[in-house]
Design a protein around this nucleic acid. Structure first.
Lengths: 248, 248
DNA sequence: AGCAATAAGATTGCTTCCAATTTTTAAGCA
DNA sequence: TGCTTAAAAATTGGAAGCAATCTTATTGCT
């Protein structure tokens, strides 16, 4: 008696389908991590369907998927918008990253095979060799470093979490960055990589922790809950103070 | 000039909608964590629509949501099935839990307010006072302990990860448990809670690590990849060896 | 008896259409 | 000029129906 296919999943045959590989999903995620799509912008169904040349139903599925990934918010009868994290969430994201990336770095140091060394050196070489002025290439490469660490930790669950955290970090940065500051100090990555390669676990952990702190401190998370569209605050950020017209 | 509503999300008005609160989603998740729905069982659209007295479209959205949460697998033209983790994934889940719950326990010890103490004591009292013979109530309570720790860590992102890991742990246990062994040794929880309440971080971390190891070692993750429906292996597990009919 | 091919039944996937709500535009009034 | 009200346009949400695929049962053959 072989397993009945009525209520038992298939052993062979067509592969399961996930929306993670979908070109529309990847396009939107790429646009977010490249800062082309900013938090709060509306993702109209018809507009997306036209851009990606697919049906509205497909777009609907994609948006639902992004909603459950915390990348998009859905307001009934109003549509989907790129998610805008709260200050609390932004802090939680960085806190979670400090915790999770400490664990991944630790796992990588404990698992220093030749392949791991090779991949790490390869990435650092790519980072140092790329065009510093190409802002978009820089963004992609700096994110890839953290993803690579998670991959080298050899744990699919942690890798999934890391990818989600990188995306949500992009949203947090795009929401709370003070204009004109760089994203990720690229010089920190070679230092972290060197300590990992040297087997210095404590040093690597400290360097990663400091690196994440630097990124977070470049944001405006000072509790003063302000609207990211607040014109006054935006001009204050670039050094233009409002005039006190009409004050006593 | 106030923010334009055309491509800026609403500040007030109707709340965003998530499928996490959906009664159908919660019903399925509850059935999974209570071991009523086992990995591999098919979730037919019409069947679910009839059970929950809703439309097929709604069920379709729910299933898509569960697919992106790694709870359900979707085979094209064949339907949705409760996800069955691989051995590799089961190990990764426990490994991730050791890392993440170590971090949450540590955060709780660092944040020992009176409220935290109270909630911890309350839960332990509930656990010790419940009916040991009610297997379903036990399952719910033991899962709640780990969720509570994550809540007390005061980080929404970590809480989401913890919830996801608890669900995926349920699937791993249901897939690889050897029949007849208990799920979670309930006696471990009071010990962990006591160490947290005493501020003994190292002790709490060690206890939690040991607790998770015990749960994992109760499973069949010995690399020998076997079909969970394998009749021979199932009877071997309960001590019945196959007869060598026809052997030389 | 056992296995392969075929036809019937059931389920999923998609297209099309229409209702409900919202956003925009226009008009009216203080 | 600025604000409120009302109508029009656009967008989202959902329902019914049909095509495509898979599963199951039946028939026929070795």
């Amino acid at each position: 008696m072989k397993p009945n296919r009525k209520d038992r999943e298939a052993d062979i045959g067509s592969e399961p389908r996930t929306l993670d590989d979908d070109p529309v999903v990847q396009g939107i995620l790429k646009a977010i991590s490249h800062k082309r799509l900013k938090p709060g912008t509306k993702l109209g169904e018809d507009a997306l369907a036209k851009v990606f040349a697919t049906t509205r139903i497909h777009i609907r599925q994609v948006l639902a998927h992004l909603v459950s990934r915390h990348i998009v918010t859905h307001f009934p009868n109003r549509g989907a918008f790129i998610y805008r994290p709260t200050i609390r969430e932004a802090r939680d994201i960085f806190s979670a990253r400090r915790m999770l990336e400490a664990a991944t770095v630790s796992a990588v140091v404990d698992n220093l095979t030749d392949d791991v060394r090779h991949l790490l050196k390869m990435h650092i070489a790519r980072e140092s060799g790329h065009d510093r002025n190409d802002r978009w290439a820089s963004l992609a490469l700096t994110a890839d470093f953290h993803i690579l660490i998670a991959e080298l930790a050899n744990n699919t669950v942690l890798l999934d979490f890391a990818k989600e955290l990188m995306l949500r970090t992009s949203l947090a940065i795009a929401t709370f960055e003070v204009p004109g500051s760089p994203d990720c100090s690229p010089d920190a990555h070679p230092g972290i990589a060197d300590m990992i390669l040297a087997g210095d676990k404590a040093g690597a952990l400290a360097a990663m922790h400091k690196h994440l702190d630097e990124i977070e401190q470049r944001l405006n998370l000072d509790g003063a809950a302000r609207d990211p569209d607040d014109i006054v605050a935006i001009f204050q950020d670039i050094g233009i103070a409002p005039l006190n017209r009409g004050a006593a």
